[in-house]
Computed example of a mutant assay.
Amino acid sequence: MTKQGHVVKKFTGYHAAAIIIAFFAVVVGVNLFMARFALSTFSGTVVDNSYVASQKYNDWLEQARNQKEHGWTVSPALREADKASITITTADGMPLLGAAMEAIAEHPVGRADPFEISFTQTATGEYRSVQPLPEGRWKLKIIISLDDQNMRVVRDIW
């Protein structure tokens, strides 16, 4: 006993071992949680086969140059109620009329399976999705076709 009736406990090897074990248990537990979270939210792949993608690169550049020649401007994708809405204008600023437009909606981190969306043109020249778009962030890979002209664009929508 010490002064004023307090008992002083000795710091033993058991105490040191318990502190060290608890410290490393917390570190390992946090690392396991973070690794599990990282692997469940992103697959880690941008393309399935980078070699094949590199073989197609020049073709993709040529397609991009051809698309610029169309003079079309595609607006950002907007969410109106549960539908996606996009406006496409021609080089002179007029709405692009009569185009066919389809898209693949993908969740940015793969939490949901991709699905197809078709679009119809409204009276104002705007293109609105036929299928509803679930809440959250989506990446729309859009193909626009008019006569023999095609355009591919990617738009994020919240």
Rank of each mutant, 00 (worst) to 15 (best):
V26C: 09
Q149V: 13
Q149F: 04
I157Y: 01
K10R: 11
Q149K: 15
E69M: 14
V46I: 09
D113L: 15
F23T: 13
A25K: 07
F23A: 09
L97A: 13
W60F: 10
A123P: 00
V7T: 03
V27F: 06
G125Y: 12
T120Y: 14
N31G: 05
V7C: 04
A35V: 12
T41V: 12
L61D: 01
K141G: 08
T122P: 06
G13K: 13
D156G: 07
A16T: 03
R65H: 12
L39G: 09
T45K: 15
V52A: 08
V27I: 14
S75I: 02
Q131F: 07
D92F: 02
L97P: 03
Q131V: 00
A16Y: 13
K139E: 13
A25M: 11
A123M: 08
P76E: 11
T122H: 08
L140N: 04
Y14W: 12
P108E: 03
G44C: 03
E80G: 07
Q4P: 00
L96I: 01
I86A: 03
K68P: 04
A18N: 09
R152P: 04
S75M: 06
I20G: 10
W60P: 00
G5T: 00
G125R: 13
F119P: 01
Q67V: 04
A123T: 10
G125D: 06
G93I: 01
D113T: 15
L32G: 10
F24W: 15
H15E: 03
V30H: 08
S118K: 11
S129L: 12
M34G: 02
E62D: 11
F37K: 15
V109D: 04
S75D: 05
L78M: 13
L146M: 08
V74H: 02
V109M: 11
Y51D: 05
S118C: 03
A112G: 01
Y14Q: 10
Q121H: 03
D147Q: 11
A22D: 00
F33L: 12
R36H: 14
F42Y: 15
T41S: 06
I142A: 00
T73W: 14
S85I: 13
M101V: 13
V26Y: 12
R79I: 06
Q63E: 12
A25C: 10
V74E: 02
G44K: 09
K83V: 05
R111T: 10
R36D: 15
F119D: 01
A91L: 15
K141A: 14
I104N: 08
